[in-house]
Amino acid sequence: MSEKLINLENIHKDYGGKVVLDNINLYVRDKEFVTLLGPSGCGKTTTLRIIGGFETPSAGVVYFDGKKINDLPPHKRPVNTVFQRYALFTHMNVYDNIAFGLRIAKVSENVIKDRVTNMLKLINLPDYAKREVSSLSGGEQQRIAIARALVNHPRVLLLDEPLGALDLKLRKEMQRELKSIQQQVGITFVYVTHDQEEALTMSDTIVVMNKGKIQQIGTPVDIYNEPKNAFVADFIGESNILDGVMHKDRLVSFCGKNFDCLDSGFEKDETVDVVVRPEDFEIVPIEDAQLVGTVKSTIFMGVHNEIMVETEDFTWKVHSIYNAEVGDKIGLFLTPDDIHIMHKS
């Protein structure tokens, strides 16, 4: 039981008939960094709020450390939350904001002072104790919100898109910082985001959600390399997704050609989704190519060019350092492990 710190079993949630969560089964291990990832409206925030106690599931059981906590109100749960828009108390200064939880727990003011001071050091804002919340930038408010939650030494920290309002550079910086804070304090993080890159860089485990259902649970590497279905493939990273037919184990046909692949266990001639990552293409001389197409457009993206290649049946997105000109004929080559086959969902 102690293996699973938080355990959600068969969670359903609907608002007046509209199903928001459909049979969610999920567990979080101690000291794990778990990310709930999905597009807006997929139910990830609702799942987090159920763990925090702000929503009650319509059906199903929430366990914390083996004990059922469905009916435990938020103020009695050993978890703390970093809210999407920080939700700092605007009528208090930074110190009082961070001290809020400790004062309610009746910790002595001396201890509070130590812990708040340490926390301000941890978030790199050591001189901010007396500042008014309204005078802080988004990034600073964000750190205060994290400090306010962490100072209570929660077993689990819940984070609801905490970096959503920050600009790209600051977001990257905070991603690294959050990860290092998590490792320093050694507690469990449950993190909600719609940003797949954020999920890939920070998490131990990613839970991909869509339309109230869990699509896949796995490590970032698993999720990226072995997406379970077309949705996950499309949502995590970029993908070319097209129809194909699985003739037999390890042989698929698409674009009118047969390709060797590594997948098996499909029915004979089953219609499947074929997924190819844009960076997996090799650009080869036309005579060696499996697919030949015309360059429709090419965009410089920094580390690579994004080349759209039109073949007879499909327009492929290809990432390559190769410099192509619009109108060029180029050849594409795929090895068997570049081709991912998925059941139609």
């Binding site: 925090g52 106690g53 702000f54 109100p73 938020p74 103020h75 009695k76 978890v79 703390n80 939350t81 809210f83 999407q84 828009r85 939700a87 700092l88 108390f89 605007t90 809020f100 939880g101 309610i104 727990a105 306010r148 939650a149 209570n152």
Partner: peptide, 21 residues
């Protein structure tokens, strides 16, 4: 802001404390 009230609950405040603080 509703989330400020939720933040207070999250930090351990019962409804009386949420009102008071």
């Amino acid at each position: 802001d509703r989330s400020m009230i939720e933040a207070a609950q999250d930090l351990g405040a019962d409804s009386v404390t949420v009102f008071r603080k």
